[in-house]
Design a protein around this nucleic acid. Structure first.
Lengths: 315, 315
DNA sequence: TTTATTTGTGACAATAGTTGTCACTATTAT
DNA sequence: ATAATAGTGACAACTATTGTCACAAATAAA
């Protein structure tokens, strides 16, 4: 085995093992321990964060900031990655912002000038529009870490009734229309609740000793399971024009209740929590002539009440 | 200079030059031509697409699929890139889809198992919600290429009046709320128009000889310049509640007209094209009690007309 | 057709880099 | 005190690389 190849594989091996000895690696690679010592010295000089301990039960460890073996990407691949990261630039407070930026700097350094020019030109030609928000989301990393490692987080949450302290265990975080949301198990309500991340005023790992639940089978993908469970439901049916179909397509809650006809029109049909009727009334009013609610009657009544109120307001 | 270092720099040099000779490189790197020949052979074996021509004015060229020198990323950088690409997975038809995917496969190959596990777990814990669209956008690459290289594109566009052929010169493409849009100079209307990409039924480079305009100073960033220029305007003023402010924040057209007060409420004020009054009427109806339009009178009249129609529809 | 310019190949002596062995040191837990 | 670990320097043996040389092949231009 050539030296360059051996160094590459050694890098992958040390990244994989938590702890290892020089003797063990020498045996595995069929070289002398002296050679392994030299190789590890060379990896160290290349920036691999190796740490050694002398004595029985000693050996080497890799500190947490591990480095991948060098990878040769095509320029097209680098451009693709550039634009993926570019697409997310509107999101402040992203958990990986620093790392993203340093990765792109590395690519930029190794690219020839004409590809750089091309990227700079493309920055002006393709964009992903995210609504610009004044809201701030400084605790995304903590929430994400809590979700991954099944941790209890103490937050201060601002709702209509004011700021209250809560213990939550996050399921995950997601961004929609420029805002971040965190579905989490709320120990106060003893149920899954959806938190808006800009309304979280502080967040820190809980130190009171509350035991986390096992939420491993609960994640962002099974979203129906995230809905609050104990509440009254009602049946909804609304006719939609073609434009109404398009607009309901874009709504998080309505996508699963949307049915289409061949001519492009469609209808919404399904169970909704009764407590959502105010939201639904305003939503269908916003759809105007593109939607007509057939039932439930409570919803139609609320729509009429709001229309009357608006008629009065505009004289 | 050590051989590995020389190979790295040689890779960057060949990527930069369009065409070069062995003699030129030997002089530049202060080695013999025989060594350069060997080095080029070795780069070739590493996958660098070199092409040579014998004879006067001969030499080497790199074919277009250039490869970057191997780059050593930290694992955190790789994770960040993974999630940038992950964020875009909802967008079908993206111009760089294949390249993105192959780049991620390279990362995945070199990562140790525990980081892979971590990424797989994170996939369930962080998400970027893009409205799911039934629409199709098969011509994004052509439009983007047209924008970058200032080309005229022949399209078939489906509007309310039916499908019509158009010659356009794209300014760029952008995604908003799951749909793609292409602002372009329209040779038929002799003005900048905004095209929805799912309504483009075909697109190909124009072969009729129409000369492209010089649109280099026009790009997605100076969006006000993209608005149609010859039309009637009217003054808009509307009071907003705190919630109304939040909802106008998310709107592409209203962000520049939004003013805030310290208590969180605000108002919209500014010039709007008269032809947008139907859209505005429905928009403010959708805001319900969170907005009150003060002027223009035509807008208030349209709002009242729509409210009356809806009252009649719901009995 | 000839000439000059380019890439290209193989061989080999000289040079540079790498490896394993050896002898020894230092640290640390048991 | 002992055993197990990392660590260092030196040197002969071995391997890889380099430059020189002689020659071959292809090609455009005069």
């Amino acid at each position: 085995m050539s030296k360059p190849k051996r160094l590459m594989e050694l890098m992958m091996t040390v990244n994989r093992k938590k702890k290892f000895t020089v003797k063990e690696l020498a045996s595995e690679f069929d070289v002398s321990t002296r050679t392994i010592l030299r190789d590890l010295q060379e990896l160290s000089e290349l920036g691999v964060p190796l740490y050694s301990e002398v004595g029985p039960h000693g050996g080497y460890q890799v500190l947490n900031e591990r480095i991948l073996p060098p990878i040769a990407f095509t320029e097209e691949e680098a451009v693709a990655i550039f634009f993926a990261c570019h697409a997310l630039r509107h999101y402040a407070y992203l958990p990986f912002e620093t790392e993203s930026s340093s990765a792109l700097n590395k690519f930029y350094f190794y690219m020839s000038g004409d590809v750089r020019d091309r990227i700079d030109e493309m920055k002006n030609r393709i964009d992903f529009v995210i609504p610009s928000r004044q809201a701030k989301f400084p605790y995304l990393s903590i929430l994400l870490d809590g979700a991954i490692r099944q941790k209890v987080i103490r937050i201060e949450y601002e709702s209509r009734e004011g700021v209250s302290a809560r213990l939550i265990q996050p399921v995950g975080i997601y961004a929609s229309s420029g805002l971040w949301y965190c579905p989490a198990y709320c120990f106060l309500r003893e149920d899954i609740r959806l938190f808006r991340c800009d309304r979280i005023k502080s967040a820190a790992e809980d130190t009171s000793g509350t035991h986390p639940l096992d939420l491993r089978n609960l994640h962002l993908g099974n979203r129906e399971a995230l809905l609050p469970s104990e509440q009254e439901f009602t049946s909804l049916y609304a006719e939609l024009s073609e434009e109404g179909v398009h607009r309901c397509e874009a709504e998080y809650w309505s996508a699963t209740k949307l049915h289409r006809r061949e001519d492009g029109t469609g209808w919404l049909e399904g169970s909704m929590p009764k407590r959502d009727i105010p939201f639904l009334a305003q939503f269908f009013i916003g759809l105007g002539a593109d939607a007509t609610v057939k039932y439930p009657p409570e919803l139609i009544d609320d729509i009429k009440r709001r229309l009357t109120e608006m008629m009065a307001r505009y004289g």
